[in-house]
């Protein structure tokens, strides 16, 4: 289980998170929604320790994430970044097998390559893609390679940062399905952040709405449409009028 406890984070005068508290049960898929600039990505990066919170703490399976062996902690996570964040200087298979080519999970190169090709196949890419470089791929293919990299070391917890941004509706559908299948298949705990309501319905077990630095509403995706929460209601229906100011 992942628990964010009263997290505060400011950048200068911009108070992004103002006491965010959220629990994600083991083996479930949580989707965090909210407007641009509300701190969704910051929240994910705080869990991973990429950004230090001003106050509050992160508990993973009851243990404080700020203490203990950092490598062992990170080895439990996989992350799909918004733009893919593939390493330009490495080929596709070397990107996917990055963790398997170095560090504590190191395997012989042939074995790592075989795992990479298997993961590429899992996300619908042919083995021929393995030796290409990221710059030679389309946006959708880059997302899929990023997804293959995120699952290559079979992590227990996977984060997806805006997995469908910039993709056409069909490719978005493909990525949503893949995420859902992989999360179910691996039994992983997943946190996804997105604006895309189609993604929310395809991926989520539970939904949390982040606004003004706090979670305004959280609950099962099945209750999202009848929540009675004016913030959530305005967001999921994309209305300009409501408690959330359209001009921020």
């Amino acid at each position: 289980m992942i628990r964010m406890e009263n997290i505060h984070k400011s950048f200068g005068n911009n108070h992004v998170l103002r006491g965010m508290t959220l629990e994600v049960e083991k083996g479930t898929s949580m989707v965090i929604i909210g407007g641009s600039g509300t701190g969704k990505s910051v929240a994910l990066k705080i869990i991973l320790g990429l950004i230090k919170p001003d106050s509050g703490r992160i508990l993973v399976d009851g243990k404080d994430a700020a203490t203990g062996d950092r490598d062992a902690f990170l080895a439990r996570f996989g992350m799909l970044f918004q733009g893919g964040a593939l390493f330009d200087s490495l080929s596709v298979w070397q990107n996917v097998a990055f963790r398997l080519l170095r560090g504590s999970l190191k395997r012989p190169p042939e074995e790592a390559r075989a795992v990479a090709i298997e993961k590429l196949r899992r996300v619908g890419l042919k083995p021929e893609v393995a030796d290409l470089f990221p710059a030679e791929l389309s946006g959708g293919m880059q997302k899929r390679v990023g997804l293959a990299r995120a699952i290559a070391a079979e992590p227990e917890i996977i984060f997806f940062d805006e997995p469908t941004t910039g993709l056409d509706p069909i490719m978005s559908g493909v990525i949503n399905e893949l995420i859902r299948e992989i999360v179910v298949e691996m039994g992983a705990t997943a946190i996804t952040i997105t604006h895309d309501m189609t993604s929310v319905r395809a991926i989520a077990d539970n939904v949390a709405m982040l606004h003004d630095g706090v979670i305004k509403w959280t609950g099962p995706v099945s209750e999202m449409d009848n929540s009675g929460d004016p913030y959530l209601d305005q967001f999921i229906h994309g209305r300009a009028e409501g408690p959330i100011e359209a001009v921020r």
């Binding site: 990066k45 490598d71 990055f98």
Partner: peptide, 13 residues
């Protein structure tokens, strides 16, 4: 800028 540095950290590097 393209989050590759963050990606390195998440890959325990």
């Amino acid at each position: 800028v393209t989050e590759q540095i963050d990606a390195l950290v998440t890959l325990s590097t």
